[in-house]
């Protein structure tokens, strides 16, 4: 086992976790008004481990490669936003598929998170049993449709 592993159920090392955190906040940073958390703040690592275990297994090598591309002197998480973006773009050729799978997983994790839903003004809950109120709609808008009369075709028409 790698010495850097900090928890037995973790799939990544601490330095990989630092790269991941920076990548996540690059994908979804906190909103400026502070209402929406960054994607760093949504327990992504445990989500991936439990919901997408196959993808979790791909994380270490992808994060290592991103860190490698970022450069030997500066760690990915220490780069400016623009430099992070440059590193991500540079890693695209090799990690294109990884990013295309990562993004929907991050978004799924993010938009099911309690803090996020509350930030959007939504309740963080299952749809059942409370359900939702939906207005009937204005049925008087159908008056012109009624006025035009029947539009079905008589079947004895030639």
């Amino acid at each position: 086992m790698n010495d850097e592993m900090i928890k037995t159920d973790r799939v990544i090392t601490q330095s990989q976790a630092d790269t991941l955190a920076a990548l996540l906040s690059h994908i979804i940073p906190a909103s400026q008004d502070g209402r929406m958390p960054a994607a760093t703040d949504i327990e992504f690592e445990s989500y991936v481990a439990s919901i997408e275990p196959n993808f979790a297994a791909e994380l270490p090598s992808a994060l290592d490669y991103l860190a490698f591309v970022a450069g030997s002197k500066m760690r990915f998480e220490a780069l400016t936003d623009a430099a992070q973006q440059a590193a991500i773009e540079q890693s695209q050729q090799k990690l294109n598929k990884f990013y295309s799978i990562l993004t929907p997983i991050v978004f799924a994790c993010y938009y099911q998170n309690e803090k996020v839903l509350e930030g959007l003004g939504l309740e963080s809950r299952a749809p059942f049993p409370k359900g939702n109120d939906v207005e009937l709609g204005d049925l008087s808008l159908l008056d012109p449709v009624r006025t035009r009369g029947p539009i079905w075709r008589q079947s004895d028409e030639g």
Binding site: E135, L136, G137, L139, L142, V145, R148
Partner: peptide
């Protein structure tokens, strides 16, 4: 009928502008 919601009003107005049939 089940509710159309606000979107029903918006799309209904669109249908009416075109003079097309629509119904919940």
């Amino acid at each position: 009928p089940i509710p159309m919601g606000k979107m029903g009003n918006v799309i209904g107005a669109g249908f009416n502008k075109l003079g097309w049939h629509w119904w919940p």
